[in-house]
Design a protein around this nucleic acid. Structure first.
Lengths: 258, 258
DNA sequence: CAAGACTAAACTGTCGACAATCGACGCTTA
DNA sequence: TAAGCGTCGATTGTCGACAGTTTAGTCTTG
């Protein structure tokens, strides 16, 4: 038993939580497209590769199922969620609904500190734009929007945003690259922040709608033009997982003996 | 393999899905308060009572965890989510955000059929009001709002509504009874529907805000007044599950050998 | 008598094992 | 040649077992 007396410092010790680790790994594999939409998630395979038994893998898969990244077909296994055009519209529709609200709340809660964070994130967007690293750019973009949700101060709203974002990451991963002109994108964030600083709800809503609506149309267009690997088809043709997730045996995950 | 030629008749075979059944049972136990907030969910206990092993129980628990009904404390088990005042504000804030949007979409998609469904549901609300069955009344109330989300036609939005509703059911279960005058509540749904029929976005938003805002304030008031069993306290005092979920051994769930 | 140490019982985290089921392949038959 | 059937390997659904932790309860000790 440990004494547990000095309540100082909290490195938030690594989670002994195998399930959590597996869930993270799986999530990454999905959003990065290493497990393409429609792919069957073979429990034993993942388990072997990660050096664990199937139990934690199944539990992690349940988590992702509820999150919407995987779909469970009883007796047939877990499959990576497929997207259709409708899904993209749904996701953006909901995202718009949520972020509009978040932005208004954020304006209400805005402090000098949080305002600076937003400003700085826009700077990051600009500097990242020079890097020619689309994935990074997308990530920093989300970070800005996530910041708004954080400032809004509703944890459930933030979680919802994260869920939507991971679905979007999948979609964008499929498309490949998203932005024609990263700097242009970075700039379009500015009026959103300006409106939030100004604090006028109607202006905020208008700018958020403009900003997200733009992304919506853009993604919609790209997806319609480039249906990559047929991954956006709506039929049940099972795609095979790529060989990378195939067979190995050495433990990759470790229970960090705290 | 079966022949699959004549597409005649379909008895819609029962789900063999044990995990799904367990998840449903657990969800009910939680929202009905048989597992009070803060209660530890002992895997072996549930498993024994349901006549299954721990594996399906754990998987079901993961589902509920992701849904927010349970909280997982590594190495300590699953606990029923506790609510604080903040949670109620969060839930209603998000609900308002979502339903406002849903109602506008619903108006856009409204067909004579869907309009009738809404009308009929309001009738049900009125007839149920005479029954003095608060739980039922709450359920029919939600059904009306859920219908709006259905008509809105965004599946993710509908799922979000369901998640929020199950959290609210928990809260309301805690409070005990909610409505002072069920008929009054039934009536307040009418202008919402009227606005949807009329189709004017601003009016719709206004009425939804009025309607839900009313419920919000009401629930907030009741919760603040009556902190039942200390279940709304925010501290980590583990509540014991009620004896009902204690020890038995006969299998309750069955794999329907279809 | 209260704070702390110690012990035993109760649980959780994982694993490996097995039976049931699914899907693919190849053979048979109109 | 194409639809139907049977077989076999691959994979899922569950279980029971075990080791390591956490918790509750008891016993010391200042």
């Amino acid at each position: 038993m440990r004494t547990m007396s000095p309540p100082v410092g909290l490195p938030a010790l690594a989670d002994t939580d195998l399930v959590g680790q597996v869930a993270r790994v799986l999530t990454q594999a999905v959003v990065q497209g290493r497990l393409p939409p429609g792919a069957k998630v073979v429990e034993a395979g993942i388990a072997r590769e990660l050096g664990v038994s199937r139990a934690p893998v199944r539990e992690a898969a349940r988590l992702l199922e509820r999150q919407g990244l995987l779909v469970a077909h009883p007796r047939r296994g877990f499959f990576v969620r497929k997207f259709e055009i409708d899904d993209i519209d749904e996701i953006y529709d909901l995202r718009l609904c949520v972020e509009r609200h978040a932005a208004v709340l954020a304006a209400r809660n805005l402090t000098p500190q949080s305002r600076d964070k937003l400003r700085r994130q826009i700077d990051v967007l600009h500097t990242t734009a020079d890097l020619d690293d689309p994935a990074r750019q997308v990530e920093e973009d989300y970070r800005f929007h996530r910041l708004i949700c954080e400032i809004a101060g509703n944890r459930r709203l933030l979680r919802l945003f994260d869920d939507l974002a991971s679905e979007l990451r999948m979609v964008i991963g499929l498309i490949g690259r998203l932005y024609d002109d990263p700097h242009e994108i970075a700039r379009t964030h500015e009026p959103v922040l300006a409106a939030i600083e100004e604090g006028h709800p109607e202006r905020i809503v208008a700018w958020v709608e403009y900003h997200i609506g733009h992304a919506w149309r853009e993604v919609g267009r790209l997806v319609r033009e480039i249906p990559p690997h047929g991954a956006l088809k709506d039929e049940a043709n099972t795609v095979r997982a790529r060989s990378q997730f195939a067979r190995k045996r050495k433990p990759v995950l470790q229970r960090s003996k705290a």
